[in-house]
Write a protein that binds this DNA or RNA. Structure first.
Lengths: 342, 342
DNA sequence: CTGAAAGCGCTTACAG
DNA sequence: CTGAAAGCGCTTACAG
């Protein structure tokens, strides 16, 4: 099949290339009969515009805004680093990425920040969202103003965001439960549960997914009430030490949030590293070492590099009015054991 | 930092843009002092060429050849489908992908096919390789002729291929062993081992990785000698049924190759689906259903879509003389359990 | 509402 | 060995 250019279409439709461009990009000011003629020509030639040429001709920068929480955890630090790397890399392709930091827990502040963005300032926004009514409203308003919005890592399900670049946290929790149940085959006892904050939707969802599966499928395991570590290692260590003291029959720990190094330390200091199954989230320098040592038994992971690249790709595709490859943008729930660590 | 164009560099170096282009793309015929001047100007301006413009100007098609085994397994069928999809998608970006089928086991035929390819016909070749001396030679010769070679799914480690788009199969086998050992906690018994063919390097590597870890870390498990299913379901079913009959103490099965549906059938017919831990490779319609039913306990997977897209990206980057994002091209060893299936 | 022409930032023959 | 000019396939003001 030969490749046709916009010139070929223009000739066939008996109009100029400018008009072809107008109907191709849904620009206003073309009479209906002209539109029809052009569309017929496009169809007849099975014309596909050349994206490369279009991008060169537009010669304009894509401006994307990333709104990230002040990095508290090592995971968020990785997200920041990946955004910086993408910004660096994409600058050679005329993409300008700017980053703003915001307090994770302040929905009103996040909403205000979104409200201040106009279509003149940015073509797209990616944000680590907070599931809060004001944020949902702000996302919808921003979308209505013509700015593409992608949620990153943490979603706002009811909103009109274009895309969510992150994992299904409920499935992640269920996956953790199945690993826990399998690794504790034949044993009965109690399982400790840690979360960073019960105000974060992703943590809650993991917790619920985990509890649900354990309750239904592993009746020999009793899950203790969740403890809030505030994603802090020192606090995590204290709480884990206390947990070990209070529950001699403890055989498993699942941490849906941060502070994993503290829990690792508590397990190792108590000499219980090997006999307690510990499942944590996110590969970091510390967690990977603990996994290799055997203190952590499995890590559930989402790939921050993939998430950030995916957010950028989706925003670019939207700006170019081009399709995305859905399969490529699905963020995996990775399970890492010692031998398949990246 | 302002964006400079090739014009800016030309002005600065006091030469024409044609000369800048020559040194930028390492074309011959520029005197050393001129090269030096141009390089200085590039450095001083921190000039980064615009890939988009370059691709448009080249106005030439990229031609990539994919050499795939006649699809015997469902996995290979997926690889074929993904290549077709990529061909379709990339045709809008001036990339012409052609596919040739070849017999997997015939190293000489594969080598002959590679030998017939010239730099005039193709910019790059991706092949599911066979670890055979003739193939290695052919890959090296092809590379020397200026054609970029990427191995896909199955590698030829000693060769000069540009890149391998696939997983580390030895790690995959070790990962399977650890899952098996963990899932069989507290039990002792025998574990059956199936491979498609012992002539395939990936199968052997998985097998060795598995045996090694079980021997070292799970002394209560005895791995039986490997059986060759030839990736055939009917044969797999027969062999699994025989295995169940011969070994009443069988508690686990690891299948490194194809033919999984046959093994699933044997387990279910024998009523042993639930009490035998079965670990298989590759998510397919059949294996995913068996995983959900609980007959399969975990699937080790490599993502064919990712592998094919990665091969294409690496070949394109080479043709454009552009960098790749290493992290993005690493193929994961996926572990799937019921809840994190894609 | 429509078109002619310049331009996006490179690469490619063709001269010299 | 080096340069002037045309061209890649679109988009963008500017006229009319």
């Amino acid at each position: 099949m030969a490749k046709f250019t916009i010139q070929d279409v223009a000739r066939r439709a008996g109009v100029s290339v400018a008009t072809i461009d107008r109907v191709l990009n849904h620009r206003p000011g073309v009479r209906a009969p002209t539109v029809a003629k052009v569309e017929a020509a496009i169809r007849e030639l099975n014309y596909q515009p050349d994206r490369i040429a279009a991008r060169l001709a537009r010669a304009r920068e894509y401006r994307f805004h990333f709104i990230l929480p002040v990095s508290t955890s090592e995971f968020m630090t990785r997200i920041h680093a990946e955004v910086e790397e993408a910004a660096q890399r994409m600058s050679a392709e005329r993409v300008a990425i700017t980053v703003t930091n915001v307090d994770v827990f302040d929905g009103e502040a996040l909403a205000a920040m979104l409200d201040a963005i106009t279509a003149e300032q940015a073509d797209g926004v990616a944000l680590v969202a907070l599931d809060h009514p004001a944020v949902r409203e702000a996302i919808n308003a921003l979308t209505a103003r013509g700015v593409a919005v992608v949620t990153l890592v943490s979603d706002v399900p009811g909103s009109k965001r274009l895309h969510y670049a992150g994992i299904d946290n409920s499935s992640a929790g269920r996956t953790a439960a199945n690993l826990m149940g399998r690794f504790l085959r034949g044993l009965s006892g109690t399982v400790g549960l840690f979360a960073g904050s019960l105000a974060l939707r992703d943590h809650i969802e993991r917790q619920f997914g985990f509890e649900q599966v354990v309750a239904h499928e592993y009746p020999d395991l009793a899950v203790l009430p969740v403890r809030e570590s505030r994603d802090d290692s020192a606090r995590g260590e204290e709480m884990a030490a206390q947990l070990l003291k209070d529950h001699p029959d403890l055989i498993g720990i699942y941490n849906v949030g941060g502070g994993t190094p503290g829990i690792v330390a508590a397990l190792e200091k108590a000499g219980r590293a090997k006999d307690i199954v510990f499942i944590a989230h996110e590969v970091t320098d510390a967690s990977r070492r603990a996994l290799i040592r055997g203190t952590i038994d499995a890590i559930i992971n989402q790939d921050p590099g993939h998430e950030v690249r995916s957010a950028v790709r989706v925003l670019m595709a939207k700006a170019d009015n081009a399709p995305v490859i859905a399969e490529q943008e699905r963020i995996r729930i990775d399970i890492f054991m010692r031998d398949n660590l990246p």
